[in-house]
Nucleic acid binder design. Structure first.
Length: 242
DNA sequence: TAGGCCATCTGGTCCT
DNA sequence: AGGACCAGATGGCCTA
């Protein structure tokens, strides 16, 4: 291999790495969108990727059964369908959201308990329940709009509404997620005016002051100067956007 | 400290 | 040739 060929290979690899990162960010965004339409949405206990997919699968099954008339969305059976194959923590989260008590063998986290009783929640709203003695939200929420959506479908009014009416509690939730986001990596440290809405910090990540600044201000996309070429200290800041 | 989860890099494969 | 997709490897972070 000549030196020029090695250089070309390296440049190609760097570009491929950037594309791969971008692709995975898009995948994560899609997953994040999926999380937001799950019936149980906790800010203190973010669902893992695999648990999100499992819960989504169960949710579809549970709603299908409910639509066929065999299952009340407020029944324990509905929750049990939701929880099939889920880990204990996720099961407890779902149980906590539905206020049906923890699953056998595990306790419900205080901050995820006492949120919303779907049967009592105002229809069509996302309701947070603040438990006395606990700090203010974020708590997990049970989005009763999903159940209203189901009720509307069962009531035969579903087809009379456009998808855009989901926000009012009826219709199919539109996918309005962002397109594949750009890489949020800066090579020059110059913040953009617009914050990047695409990559909230992960639940377990405590951003450094530099990271916080990056997250709040947003940074430019520099595919031309790929990640691999950054100084080590800049490499260490990219995870804030994952 | 071990295990879970995650982001990233990398090489392989397939397709255009 | 180059891009998309995939899976394995690796290392970091967090929690029990």
């Amino acid at each position: 291999m000549t030196k020029a060929r090695v250089e070309r290979f390296r440049a190609r690899r760097i570009k491929a790495n950037a594309r791969e990162r971008s692709r995975m960010h898009g995948l994560n965004d899609a997953l994040e969108n999926l999380r937001t339409i799950m019936p149980c949405h906790s800010k203190t206990q973010k669902l893992s990727k695999i648990e999100t997919l499992r819960l989504a699968r169960n949710y579809i099954c549970a709603l299908s059964e409910a639509l066929e008339g065999g299952l009340s969305t407020e029944s324990r059976a509905f929750m049990e369908t939701l929880c099939k194959g889920l880990s204990q923590p996720t099961t407890n989260l779902v149980a906590g959201c539905l206020q049906l008590g923890p699953a056998p063998g595990g306790g419900t986290r205080p901050e995820d308990r006492h949120r919303v009783q779907p049967a009592h929640a105002p229809l069509g709203g996302v309701v947070s329940y603040s438990s006395p003695g606990l700090p203010s939200p974020p708590y997990g929420t049970f989005d009763s709009a999903h159940l209203l959506h189901l009720r509307a479908m069962k009531g035969g009014v579903y087809e009379n509404h456009s998808p855009n009416e989901y926000n009012s509690g009826v219709g199919t939730p539109p996918y309005d997620g962002p397109p594949t986001p750009p890489l949020s990596i800066s090579t020059n440290g110059v913040p953009k005016q617009e914050p990047s809405p695409h990559y909230p910090p992960p639940h377990h990540y405590s951003p450094s002051p530099v990271d916080q600044d990056m997250y709040q201000t947003g940074y430019d996309v520099q595919l031309e100067a790929p990640y691999d070429t950054y100084p080590e200290e800049q490499k260490n800041t990219h995870r804030v956007f994952t």
